[in-house]
Every structure is written in structure tokens, then in C-alpha cells.
């Protein structure tokens, strides 16, 4: 590992000079939903399943004994991501722009696509993490997004307002 350009005791150590005054920002979103409400909605309008969930999400949930709990968790995850972005369901966004996938050990991860991914990147998203739980007929999702002052690809990060002004 190359030596740090600045002594570690310096508060700016590890940061490039141009962003030393801007620490990473954390954005968070949480959502709680009744499992029965999601089950009822998907049962009464089966066509909505493909509009809201990706084929991979549906395949995962349908393999489970209690598919409704897993679908509800994924619904809550999508809502949590939208809350973390601060936009709600903004223009051109699709529910399937947000996908929950599971690692081999079962840990859920998020994948973002389309307009949702574009907005997240404009906010400087560096990492996004998700936790899901369900009990007592409720499913909860919690999303934490770490945003850097400059986006990983070098593009400037914006606040939602900055982004709007530059649109």
C-alpha cells in the first residue's frame, strides 16, 4: 500500500484535498407493510406481480413456503429505497428498477436499474445495504445508502436540489 500523502494524525488523512471538507453522507429509508395487504393486492390483481417484482424476485419468493412474507419484504425494500433517495416514486421510475437478490447464504442485496439507479448515482451513492425482517404479520425493510461527496466514477455528486437545478 503506498504511503499516505498526509500524516494519519491529520484530520484530512485519506481524503483528497478537494473534498476534505465533505465527509460521506448516509441516507436511510425504512418501510413497514402488512403482509396480508401485499398478499391480497397480488392475489386480486395477478398482473401487478410482474409490474412490481422482477422475474428473479418472483422465482425466489414462489420457491418459499410463505411467499407472501417474502413479497411483502421486497415491497418494503422498494419503498425504503425510494425513501432513502428522498424522491418517492419519481418520474420515469419503475418498481422493477429496484431488485432484491439473495446471496448464497440468504443475505439480501439490492440492485438498482434505470431511473432509480440514475438518481442514486446523482446523489453520489457509493454503497447501499438492506436488512429485512418479518414477524406478526408485518414485514420491515431498512436501507442504508452511503454517498460520497464525489461519485465513484468521478462525476460530481449532487443533493436532490442541486441535481434538479443542473437538470
Amino acid at each position: 500500500m503506498p504511503p499516505s500523502r498526509q500524516p494519519l494524525r491529520e484530520p484530512d488523512a485519506g481524503w483528497s484535498p478537494d473534498r476534505s471538507a465533505l465527509p460521506p453522507r448516509v441516507r436511510t429509508g425504512v418501510d413497514l407493510v402488512e403482509v396480508a395487504r401485499v398478499e391480497e393486492l397480488m392475489a386480486s390483481h395477478p398482473e401487478l406481480r410482474e409490474r412490481v417484482f422482477t422475474p428473479r424476485e418472483l422465482a425466489y419468493c414462489d420457491r418459499r413456503g410463505r411467499a407472501g412474507e417474502h413479497l411483502a419484504g421486497r415491497w418494503a425494500a422498494k419503498e425504503s429505497v425510494l425513501k432513502s433517495l428522498g424522491t418517492g416514486m419519481g418520474p420515469r421510475m419503475e418498481w422493477t428498477d429496484i431488485e432484491v437478490v439473495n446471496e448464497l447464504g440468504g443475505r439480501p442485496r439490492l440492485r438498482l436499474y434505470g431511473e432509480v439507479e440514475a438518481v442514486a448515482r446523482s446523489l453520489g451513492m457509493h454503497h447501499i445495504d438492506l436488512s429485512l425482517s418479518h414477524s406478526g404479520g408485518l414485514a420491515v425493510a431498512h436501507v442504508v445508502m452511503v454517498c460520497l461527496p464525489a461519485a465513484p466514477d468521478g462525476a460530481p455528486a449532487h443533493t436532490p436540489h442541486d441535481r434538479r437545478r443542473s437538470a
Binding site: 395487504r37 393486492l41 390483481h45 398482473e47 401487478l48 412490481v52 418517492g88 416514486m89 419519481g90 418520474p91
Partner: peptide, 26 residues
């Protein structure tokens, strides 16, 4: 928001007018 999704889909089925949640703000 889940109710809004439900409402808009019911309207679509009854009227053939499709409005998405993301259309409203726009």
C-alpha cells in the same frame, strides 16, 4: 403508496386508462 398502486390498477381495469404512480407527480 400500496393503496395508490391498488387504486390506479383498479381504475385501469375498469376504464382502460393507465396511470402509473410515477406519472402523478410528473
Amino acid at each position: 403508496s400500496i393503496d395508490l398502486l391498488d387504486i390506479l390498477f383498479r381504475i385501469e381495469k375498469a376504464s382502460e386508462v393507465k396511470i402509473k404512480v410515477s406519472d402523478i407527480a410528473e
